[in-house]
Write a protein that binds this DNA or RNA. Structure first.
Lengths: 275, 275
DNA sequence: CGTTCCCTTGAGTAGTTTCAATACTTGTGG
DNA sequence: CCACAAGTATTGAAACTACTCAAGGGAACG
């Protein structure tokens, strides 16, 4: 549960102490944009955001928090656990994205009012509820915070674009490698990355639906990762021998996550006084 | 150039007259969100938006308006022509999205400051420039308009998600069919849809790079569309015999475009007075 | 009137799907 | 504690989809 990733080759997103402090101060929203634009939020803005979460719910795995087409009047911040964006087409299911703690999973529902996909709990989760009334107030009175919220929804779009690339470019084995490399990096950003493994509640059929392949072929793809000594999946956890090889194999380059790196947001948005 | 699509099965997005009026009143921004949330903008907001475009540029096809990683201080509204979001990986190029007139193609650059992809003109284009200073003012003083701008960037994300589904699910032939079905619908929304064809400046290699396949295989996929009597591509223009069959073949369902349909934005966002 | 870019076709290979069958794992009830 | 059921994981073989290399044909533009 260290904040510092393995191998010494990775960037440190925060010390264990600073992360623990942040979670202690903001137990519901402390991971929101951690490792990305969180440093641009003032203490007041972070407090305001924390107080906007009026309710915390615990939900079982496999539950839909939201269905495609539902009219929504609140948004949901994922506090603990994993969620998936899914779409169902009669018999088949497609997974369009994966969410980790700190993600404001349906913040876009504030502007869209209806979503084009379902939001499913992958394993047990804890979520915080923010009413759209509160968000409306933020839009009216807190332009800087509003812009940071906007930024958060754009991060999802950037991840979508990377998935498009992943699907256009990679074979099934490389796609899973990419999925795990991304997940690991995102967990690192919010202080939940482990040293040598990535733990998820996902089964092979889930991974298949994320990678646009069949569960059977996903099984063979994972066998390839094992044979090549990149990593081994056992009961949802990928045990990784060499993180760098995992990332290379999956053609993963973290910059699209807008953490520290070439695309990282610079001083322009850093100061809350500007907004 | 009719606003009413062919076949009688499609929804009318605006009469020729109302579209012409809108373009006459707002020659640079008149197509922005047309057929989607434009009706939620007040006259004042539309005027403000039009006046935010301080410069119009004509650009040759093949030009990059913006490169991945560039620090940006303005955003770009596409007035005429087509653009593509691309990423280059040494030898290969990937196309992550396609933009049509009325699209605020790098509005997300306002919040992200650096983009993760290039923006290329596909064929000659005309664009309007909006400085980020102006956008900043809007964030400060026009919360309703700000929210509509936010909405516009979320539409792109919705299209990204559909592309993910398309790539996870469809064969190459069905993928191109989907690309053209989507494009047609989006052109209809902004009053540029034709009766029985979709005209683009795209070559087969472009289509291949959008569909995650090779130019050679794309050629065979297009041959299949021709053989099955769905449509025929000649010099960028797809001549469509039966629009409904094109959409069925590409498993296209327009609702993710948030025009009229089950996901269409309802009264909640309709009134500018609310914001 | 030839160069260049774009499109088309053929043949062999690689990656993926499908159907079918078999094991492993976990939780449950006897 | 064992037996069983349900869900999950694994393997084999044939069919399909897509990729690569190779070659040739067509249209546009100087």
């Amino acid at each position: 549960m260290k904040g510092e990733p393995a191998g010494g080759s990775q960037i440190v997103f925060g010390t264990d102490e600073s992360i623990a402090e942040e979670i202690a101060s903001y137990p519901r929203t402390g991971r929101f944009l951690m490792g990305r634009l969180r440093h641009a939020l003032s203490r007041d803005e972070k407090r305001l955001l924390e107080d906007m979460v009026t309710e915390v719910r615990t939900v079982e795995g496999g539950t839909a928090l939201l269905h495609r087409n539902d009219l929504v009047n609140h948004s949901t911040l994922l506090i603990d656990g994993y969620m998936m964006r899914t779409v169902h087409d009669g018999s088949r299911r497609f997974i369009l994205g994966l969410q980790v703690p700190g993600d404001f999973v349906d913040l876009h529902g504030f502007a869209l009012k209806r979503l084009d996909h379902d939001l499913m709990a992958a394993g047990p989760i804890r979520v915080g509820i923010v009413s759209h009334e509160r968000l409306e107030e933020v839009m009216q009175t807190q332009p800087h915070l509003a812009r940071v919220l906007w930024f958060a929804t754009l991060l999802d779009a950037a991840i979508h674009r990377e998935w498009i690339m992943k699907l256009e470019q990679l074979t099934a084995a490389r796609r899973v490698a990419h999925v795990f490399a991304e997940l690991w990096q995102r967990l690192d950003q919010v202080g939940l990355g482990r040293t040598d493994s990535v733990r998820t509640p996902l089964i092979q059929a889930d991974l298949a639906d994320m990678c646009g392949t069949t569960a059977i072929h996903m099984n063979r793809a994972l066998a390839q990762l094992r044979k090549e000594g990149i990593g081994e999946l056992r009961r949802g956890t990928l045990y990784v021998a060499d993180r760098r090889r995992l990332e290379e194999f999956g053609k993963f380059d973290a910059s699209y996550l807008y953490g520290r790196g070439s695309l990282a947001v610079g001083t322009a948005l850093d100061s809350p006084d500007r907004g």
